[in-house]
Write a protein that binds this DNA or RNA. Structure first.
Length: 643
RNA sequence: GCCGGAGUAGCUCAGUGGUAGAGCAACGGUUUCGUAAACCGUAGGCCAGGGGUUCGAUCCCCCUCUCCGGCUCCA
């Protein structure tokens, strides 16, 4: 019986039963058939030489699509494993999936790989690609597979983990063979190794088997593969560009902050320009908090260990806390890793009535967490940082509206800083929890509704919530498409319980309030670091530490430059006058490399006419003879902060 | 915390088992200049820290600290 293949344009291609993907593609066009790496029937990907037995929606997969690239990278990972097994006696292999922009493969070998090893392996891979070995799909029983892979313990573990209850297929295992190499794999693969157009190994590192730090540490090799060497080069350039945005490089370069070795790992000092930047961000945070009905509180950096026992942090968070400190017979104290217990104490400072609720308490609170030494990463992951933290106490009836308000706050906040793409995760109940199933249902539903109210796309992270309540994490995409987690809205059934929080409900019934933790920027340090990378250091004018650089052409223009500066400072602009003895070109170059949004060049004509030469960052031309008033108005307009 | 790599002037980097080098920045002088680097000069170093091997260590070995790439974790 012939199979009917519905092409993406709606036409139907009727083919004999058992037609291969390659033949079907050829029927559409020989060029397409040459470019094809796999076909898709009703969403199922098949190798080019697999017979098609049932019709459906048919697509030819080429390297122009993400699916095609995934196949390319998966096949590249196989070639990587093949090369490693060829070159290293006793090496065994674990898993090797395609990932964003590339692939990796995990190995167990005697010695970790060195950069020289990578070169050798890449050389062997090129030979395999040159030999154009066909990938052959092999179907075998579990028993056969266990036999074939008996020397490879990780493969055996994978085969044994295949759930036989998954219908008839559960007893079958597929693998792909090329030359003497065979690897377990669902496929599909490229028709042959020669179909890998461009590939490069990037680095090696350690990685735990199954991501479990208690299990074997394997050696992972990362690589990338692309449809052409142009695309590969573009990708490598993109990596370089991303490196130039690195906040650890740009921050010190722009004199924002630094990480003195004497200070300690994960700790930064903020320089005046970084301080200015943070002040603008934090001022905006305070204004927004007030606008959304939050009240500011302050709390100390440490508190009695007993407080952290009551809050439960010493049970579930101690490994992230700095050790206790104690003097003589005084009680032990702990530096705070979170602000919540303090805000709870504010709540408890007097009896509360339903009329007090919702009570929204906010603080830019400095916290300290003992991060594992391998994870600190500039100001994106520090040991001391400042949360724009808030804790809202409300009744059950208020919960829904409060969540909507918090999410509204978060999104407004992020938009003000130029982020437009958001993705949310809704983390739901894990196995062990505080709170009743009814409470969790209520809370998860309330969070989901808040997300829907804002028309925000979200993913449900099943079972990923912490034990004390479900939460929403909001992720942003930056200018070059990277995803960052900043904001979080977290419900808490635990602390109100542990601290026995209460309020008097109407009719003088005692009730327990709900509690919502919320961070908008997350940490001021991380958020600032993300902004540095997002804008590559060239901040929008309202954020820029120096908004206007004034460049007098010669010494005799300095007096006028001071006058202009004063005029602009009166208009609340942040202005610097460059009085170094350097040439005009040099001074302009410095202002531009420091990424100042505006440069005013002042010479004889300007002194005579009361004008300025205006040059804006990102524009490679300048405008001469702009009247000072006009320039000032324009700059003030550009520097306006989001209201 | 784990695996690997690295640490030389403020920054970017050369360098060698035998007294430490460049460019930029800094400082001094000359230049006073109209849109991305004027010229001359000066100074700057416990070669991350500590131990060892050696006649001699910045270089070789060990430990510690810090950073980088990952894993795990995460604001």
């Amino acid at each position: 019986m012939p199979v009917e293949l519905r092409l993406p344009d709606g036409t139907v291609s009727t083919q004999p039963e058992g037609v291969t993907g390659l033949e079907a593609a050829r029927a559409i066009g020989p060029g397409l058939a040459r470019a094809a790496v796999a076909v898709s029937v009703d969403g199922h990907l098949l190798d080019m030489d697999r017979p098609i037995t049932e019709g459906g929606n048919f697509r030819v997969i080429t390297l122009d699509s993400q699916e095609g690239l995934d196949i390319l990278r998966h096949s590249s990972a196989h070639v990587l494993a093949q090369a490693v097994l060829d070159l290293y006696d006793g090496a065994t292999f674990a898993i090797g999936p395609p990932i964003e922009d590339g692939f990796y493969y995990d190995f167990e070998v005697g010695e970790p790989f060195t950069p020289d090893d990578l070169e050798r392996i890449e050389g062997r891979m090129r030979e395999i690609i040159e030999e154009d070995q066909p990938f052959q799909r092999v179907v075998m029983s579990r028993e056969q597979a266990l036999e074939v892979f008996s020397d490879h313990k990780f493969k055996v573990e994978i085969i044994e983990a295949v759930d036989p209850s998954e219908g008839a297929r559960g007893e079958e295992v597929t693998a792909y063979r090329n030359d003497g190499f065979i690897d377990l794999c669902r496929g599909p693969h490229l028709p042959s190794t020669g179909r890998i157009p461009a590939m490069k190994l990037l680095r090696s590192s350690g990685a735990y088997w199954r991501g479990d730090e208690n299990r074997e540490q394997l050696q992972r090799i990362y690589g990338t593969a692309w449809a052409s060497s142009e695309q590969l080069n573009q990708y490598l350039t993109r990596i370089e560009e991303a490196e130039k945005r690195d906040h650890r490089r740009l921050g010190p370069q722009l004199d924002l902050y630094s990480f003195p070795e004497e200070l300690g790992s994960g700790l930064a000092v903020w320089h005046p320009k970084g301080g200015q930047l943070r002040k603008v961000i934090e001022d905006h945070s305070r204004r927004m908090h007030e606008r959304f009905g939050f009240e500011f509180v302050f709390s100390p950096h440490l508190g009695k260990a007993e407080l952290w026992e009551t809050s439960g942090h010493l049970d579930f968070y101690e490994e992230n806390m700095y050790p206790g400190m104690q003097r003589g017979d005084d009680p032990e104290y702990r530096v705070k890793p979170m602000n919540c217990p303090f805000h709870v104490l504010v709540y408890k400072s007097r009896g509360r009535s339903y009329r007090d609720l919702p009570l929204r308490l906010g603080e830019l609170g400095g916290v300290y967490r003992y991060e594992k030494s391998g994870v600190v990463h500039g100001i994106l992951r520090a040991r001391g940082f400042t949360q724009d933290d808030s804790h809202t106490f409300c009744t059950g009836e208020q919960l829904q509206d409060e969540l909507v308000l918090h999410l509204d706050f978060v999104l407004n906040w992020l938009r003000d800083f130029g982020f437009t793409e958001f993705e949310a995760d809704l983390s739901t109940r894990p196995e062990k929890v505080m709170g009743t199933p009814q409470e969790w249902d209520l809370a998860e539903r309330a969070l989901a509704e808040a997300l829907v109210t804002h028309g925000l796309d979200y993913r449900i992270a099943e079972g990923e919530a912490v034990f004390y309540g479900p939460k929403i994490d909001v992720h942003i995409r930056d200018a070059i498409g990277r995803r960052w987690q900043c904001s979080t809205i977290q419900l808490d059934f635990n602390l109100p319980e542990r601290f026995e929080l209460e309020y008097a409900a109407p009719g003088n019934v005692t009730e327990r309030p709900y509690m919502i933790h919320c961070a908008k920027a997350g940490s001021m340090e991380r958020f600032t670091g993300v902004l540095v990378e997002h804008y590559a250091g060239a901040f929008p004018m309202w954020l820029a530490p120096v908004q206007v650089s004034i460049v007098p052409v010669a010494d005799r223009h300095e007096e006028y430059a001071d006058q202009v500066a004063e005029r602009l400072r009166d208009a609340e602009l942040r202005v610097e006058v460059d009085k170094s003895g350097d040439t005009v070109g040099d001074k302009i170059r410095r202002a531009l490399t420091d990424k100042h949004p505006a440069v005013l060049v002042l010479g004889d004509d300007d002194v005579a006419e009361g004008t300025v030469g205006l040059r804006l960052y990102g524009e490679d031309r300048d405008t001469r003879g702009v009247p000072l008033i006009e320039a000032a108005n324009r700059l003030v307009e550009m520097a306006r902060r989001p209201s």
